[in-house]
Amino acid sequence: MTMFHFFNCAILTFGPHAVYYSATPLSEYDTLGTSVKTAVVYLGTALVKLVCLATFLKVSESDSFDPSQELLKALIGFIDVAGLYFALTQLTHRNISQNHKFQAVGLGWAFADSVLHRLAPLWVGARGLEFTWDYILQGLEANANLMLSLSLAALGSLMWLRKNKPKTLIPIIYACAGIVATMPSITSYLRWGLKWHLPEVVGFQVLTSLTMALISWQLFSACQRPSSSA
């Protein structure tokens, strides 16, 4: 029965990634290699982040919210963006369209994140007899994260790869990218600074990531149109 619960949570956590891969044209163009490379880049980024956190952050004994420390943490969080930039521009991808490239990168990014952050707690926790909602919420969080990674990758590809985009949209793209990139820090602030409960935080994450995904989608298709017509 507990194994059952573990499988349920695993499906919720990792299922969307697989579904996304198989449902979209990504599977047809065989972009798995790109995703895997991105995952490796993610691992590298995570390592760099860890080193930075360990170097610059003071160890606080209490669980209190320290603004300066949190700011530093947020800054270190931007290393993610650098990693994503590397994955989008520097990796030699096989000849796939930008349209698929960002999706593959976002997917690989989100999947690596889920595996790294959620698999071990899930395996240890959800198999136990004790029931908590935590792992289901964590699965929902993974879904939100997938959407967020995809939007960030989409915005990134718009910023760094597309040359001829409508001038009016550029500030909006950058603003959105900024918001998406700071989202992890915002949620961490909500959780530790304002002491929100986990369900509230996850609800917030799902809602914001959904809106951000919609906005980036609209932006992407708005940029797509002139380029396809040109």
Partner: peptide
């Protein structure tokens, strides 16, 4: 050890 447990029906529904 006291565990708070979910019933099998709950897990089936969740699935």
């Amino acid at each position: 050890q006291i565990y708070q447990v979910a019933s099998v029906t709950f897990d089936l529904l969740l699935l």
